[in-house]
Amino acid sequence: MINKIVSSAEDAVSGIFDGATVMIGGFGEAGSPVELIHALIDQGAKNLTIVSNNAGSGHVGLAALIENRQVKKIICSFPRTAISVVFPELYRKGEIELELVPQGTLAERIRAGGAGIPAFYTPTSVHTSLSEEKEQRDFNGKPAVLEYAIQADFSLVKCLKADKYGNLTYNKTARNFGPVMCMAAKTAIVQARQIVEPGVIDPEHVVTPGIFVHRVVEISNPADESKLVAEKIRYHEIK
């Protein structure tokens, strides 16, 4: 019988191993799976390669994971935010590796990873420093850059509603990278604000079909990351 529901965030992140590639959803705080990230800090896997649009704010969520020295490398489009302190400090010291990727290329590399497309050509970043060492080819007289798909061992995603089959809906712009990150990971781990009975989510309204999802945990009152950041809270103070 299929039942992807697990009972705690701790169970949800079990098995994430040292050196794993982990995709983390969210655009800033919108869609950031704070509770799953904190469970990963408690779990302790190290030398992780993180794929995420940003590099965290304050001392909670992704920033706390980086601060706890669990991240070797981050693949990301915008590691600079108004209140990012952890990543800039480690980056300047040369203690974290950064692969900077244009946002749309990042999304498409992840989508391709989930869709079984090993690589693709895109006009984004042609004639810029970000494409200097990349293969290029002209299509219809216009240059394009070869970009490779990204696949992950795990993804951590936040959604609004989920059922035991892993069908998901999202909340507003918190959707962002969630659907493609679920597709591109061997094990997609999702925190849902609410778990509902199968059929409650109208099949016409399913955003991520359950086949892309492996574990679901209900976190009914997820932390408001911006509040935690504003109050200068650190992750270990939340417990």
């Binding site: 655009f27 705080e29 919108a30 869609g31 649009n53 946002q103 749309g104 507003k172 962002n176």
Partner: peptide, 26 residues
């Protein structure tokens, strides 16, 4: 906090708006 623009400011959506994931957006 889950309805933001590209500058991460809190915004609103008009009647007739649509949400989508990043690959569709790009």
């Amino acid at each position: 906090p889950e309805l933001v623009n590209a500058g991460k400011k809190y915004v609103t959506a008009i009647p007739g708006a649509a949400y989508f994931h990043h690959a569709d957006s790009f």
